[in-house]
């Protein structure tokens, strides 16, 4: 076959144009979409701002350890250190649990309660169920808080009976001391739980238990007055408010209570 020779240009096409197939359009990228681009910028910006905050906290020394900054933090720190040092004093454990609950560290409080049950003898103080009652109350589980309080009462009543039955000086001391102070605290916790559950008459009984050995607690007197008012006993409520004002004249909460039942302070 003779050589066909070089290809000739199409005379209708301008010089210099190569004869090639039509150029394929560029494959689209999702970043061509302006909204996608903006969303990408926002995402990147969020990460940068957060990292800058962390860097700022590190550079300015905010994340360095420091001493306690609030009462709760101090109680957690001091009691926690005593517990970690191996203290078997139930009151130390109880203070630690209470501080954790006050600080909102419920998970840690639960863990410490479990550790305490395994580690210490609590038969004389009932700190562990009391701590549990605090925890349940803080979490809004009032029925379970009441169950824990009842356990506290059983333990302390049993302890008192045992000491009274011992005779001698132990009996004499038990007669002097009576029930452990945690009994009153438990009663108070139960009273507030009952108020939350709307059981005001039962709450009055528990407030009364607390006030028997804490007669000057004006704030609790007002709380009992409020419970009496809600239970419909306005006479008892007035008596409570006025008793509170005997200790703190013109106590605002007591004055407010009296006004709420239509009595002139």
């Amino acid at each position: 076959m003779p050589d066909a020779g070089p290809p000739t240009l199409d005379p209708g096409r301008p010089d210099g144009d190569e004869q090639q197939p039509a150029a394929a359009p560029a494959r689209p990228s999702m970043f061509d979409d302006p909204l996608v681009r903006r969303m990408t910028f926002v995402a990147a910006g969020l990460v940068i701002v957060f990292l800058a905050t962390v860097v700022g906290a590190l550079v300015t020394g905010l994340l360095l350890p420091s001493g306690p900054r609030t009462l709760t933090e101090k109680e957690i720190a001091v009691a926690g250190e005593a517990v970690r040092a191996g203290s078997t004093d139930p009151e130390v454990w109880g203070t630690y649990i209470a501080a954790l609950v006050d600080g909102g560290q419920y998970g840690r409080a639960r863990s410490v309660i479990e550790d305490a049950r395994r580690s210490i003898d609590d038969s004389g103080t009932a700190e562990i169920p009391l701590g549990e009652a605090r925890l349940y109350s803080a979490q809004g589980q009032y029925e379970r808080a009441i169950e824990s309080v009842d356990e506290v009462k059983r333990i302390l009543e049993a302890d008192l009976e045992t000491r009274l039955a011992s005779g001698g000086r132990i009996r004499e001391a038990a007669l002097l001391d009576g029930l452990h102070p945690n009994y009153d605290i438990a009663a108070l916790l139960k009273a507030y739980a009952l108020v939350e559950l709307g059981r005001h008459e039962d709450a009055v009984d528990e407030f009364t238990i607390f006030l028997e050995r804490n007669r000057g607690a004006s704030d609790v007197l007002v709380d009992r007055g409020n419970a009496n008012r809600e239970a419909g006993d306005t006479a008892a409520a007035e008596a409570d408010y006025r008793e509170a004002m005997r200790f703190i004249p013109d106590m605002p909460q007591a004055v407010e209570g009296l006004e709420s039942i239509g009595v002139t302070p």
Partner: peptide, 9 residues
Amino acid sequence: SIYGMSSAI
């Protein structure tokens, strides 16, 4: 508040 130099008792 400032309670001390560190968390140690």
